[in-house]
Nucleic acid binder design. Structure first.
Lengths: 186, 186
DNA sequence: GTCTATAGACGGATAGAC
DNA sequence: GTCTATCCGTCTATAGAC
């Protein structure tokens, strides 16, 4: 697997640029310049710019779930685990300078013009919802809580907080929804 | 004011294309072709593509507030007025084919690269928050409700529902947050 | 003020040497 | 499999005729 060195460098450079500048504002020439690679090599590893975009999304999704596992490692209390998802998203926003969610950003930019992308984002958000639903079910054992309703409520609050904090460049929406969520946990 | 005919046509064409395809994916050439106008005329009315973008945002903001006034006209009950904001955003999403919020979209695409744009979007979302806060204050007279907390809660739920429905292409998040909000209104 | 023509830079992608 | 050179299209914006 040593042969993936060049590919990795291209991918990480492209990921950073796509996230910071946007997909359409990032040119192939800039990617190869910053990755210090020749254009022929890029097209040897990726068949097109769209192909590179999809590889970027897959990488970010893996990183997202890996990061959450790391962030919530050792937390066994179900209520605290739910809260840790909020603090995870807050941490992601803070460390990125409130640059936003990779998936919401790319979906906003490309709309429905690249079906593989809109499908991927849709599926990714469903995975996030499923994660929340499982945590809520874990929490709500033997209670009368409507888990579907509650899961959706938390999911939408988090999505709202991410978008709002990206625009305002402040972490306060996360503090807010943490308070709200803690108050809702019976 | 008759002289604004060409300008209006350019602006409306650009608005539609910016919204559907994204700002960076829309070229000047496409705008002038669809507006059936010469490129020299476009630059006579707008000094640059960025200038056209700002005019688009101002137009959409005016349209947004005008549309809500129209949608909520005749509703005097404060609780119902809050709910009508949810149904308004739901209507906007449905009629646009779940194309999303103009302002979130443009902020996601351009990030911080055009300060005039990110500042505008930030200010616009603050206006939406202020509108909600005023409705909540109207509603909460003589009650013990924490209006700031409650306003932020509603705002974030709506933003989350807009983003989520844009990705899933479904209206269900709005039905969800309407139920949640109605349950919270004491 | 609206038009055509075009500048000048950059977009994604390919060919072929090594 | 990495390199350089280059194709052709499109980009935003300007110049100058009418």
């Amino acid at each position: 697997m040593k042969k993936e060195k060049a590919r990795e460098r291209i991918l990480k450079t492209a990921a950073e640029l796509f996230y910071r500048q946007g997909f359409n504002s990032t040119g192939i020439n800039q990617i190869i310049a910053e990755a210090d690679i020749a254009i022929g090599s890029l097209y040897n590893h990726f068949s097109s710019k769209n192909d590179l975009l999809q590889a970027y999304l897959i990488m970010e999704e893996n990183e997202w779930f890996r990061g959450f596992e790391e962030h919530s490692a050792g937390i066994s209390d179900p209520g605290k685990k739910i809260i840790s998802l909020i603090t995870y998203r807050k941490k992601l926003q803070k460390t990125s300078g409130f640059a936003g969610c990779h998936f919401i950003k790319i979906a906003s930019e490309t709309g429905e013009s690249i079906p593989a992308v809109s499908d991927f984002v849709k599926s990714h958000k469903e995975k996030q919802k499923k994660l929340i639903r499982e945590m809520v079910q874990q929490y709500a054992q033997n209670t009368a809580l409507d888990t579907d309703q509650f899961s959706e409520h938390i999911f939408l609050l988090i999505e709202g907080a991410v978008v709002s904090s990206t625009i305002s460049k402040k972490a306060s929406p996360f503090d807010h929804i943490q308070k709200i969520t803690e108050a809702m946990l019976p």
